[in-house]
């Protein structure tokens, strides 16, 4: 029987994986607590005391506990540690779903960050957009800035693909290629 696994590149060890190129460093971020909040976001704010708006595309998130807006009625809440919020439906009108295992997070920094962004999306990073959910490198991603770096959340199943894309992008930026 053919081993179709040979067709796919081996996923990197996310604990140590790094892409280093002149003006660009990409790392995988592990250990972040990620929650999806859906429904009445004002009720979420009242119940949790946390931000109910969230940053949009290329917006700047601050601190170790913040939110990125995904849709009119959906947030991604990110924190360094667990939050005192139960998952499941809340009678106030919102639902909380743990998604830490479902989304891989990458962090990108360096002087070539603008060139990196330009290769990933046609969206103008200087123009505000309410939702941080956008198409990046041809896949759905959640993209914003955090402490001067670009953070990208993608479905974990697409993380190896995005890593390969970022390796190629970094290589092309270094070579000054238009590809």
């Amino acid at each position: 029987m053919r081993d179709l696994a040979e067709k796919w590149s081996v996923a990197p060890d996310w604990q140590s994986a790094v892409i280093a190129a002149p003006g660009l460093v990409v790392r995988a971020i592990a250990g972040l607590n990620q929650l999806l909040v859906s429904g009445d976001l004002d009720a979420w704010t009242r119940a949790s005391g946390l931000d109910g708006n969230g940053v949009g595309a290329f917006g700047t998130a601050q601190g170790d506990r913040y939110a990125a807006r995904l849709a009119r009625d959906r947030l991604l809440v990110v924190s360094n540690g667990p939050l005192p919020v139960a998952t499941g439906w809340h009678a106030e009108g919102f639902a909380v779903t743990a998604i830490s295992a479902g989304l891989q997070v990458f962090e990108v920094e360096g002087s070539a960050l603008d060139a990196f962004i330009a290769r990933g999306t046609t969206l103008d990073p200087r123009q505000a957009s309410a939702s941080a959910a956008l198409s990046f490198a041809g896949i759905s991603a959640i993209v914003y800035r955090h402490q001067g770096r670009l953070r990208i959340h993608v479905d974990r199943g697409l993380a190896a693909y995005l890593w390969t894309w970022m390796e190629t992008a970094a290589s092309n930026i270094t070579a000054g290629s238009g590809n």
Binding site: A57, R72, T121, T122, L123, A130, S131, L134, S135
Partner: peptide, 17 residues
């Protein structure tokens, strides 16, 4: 390539729609 205006997000690439 066209930009379409999402009522929530604003202008986005047509491939997102």
């Amino acid at each position: 390539m066209q930009l379409f205006p999402c009522p929530f997000c604003g202008p986005r690439d047509e491939t997102e729609f």
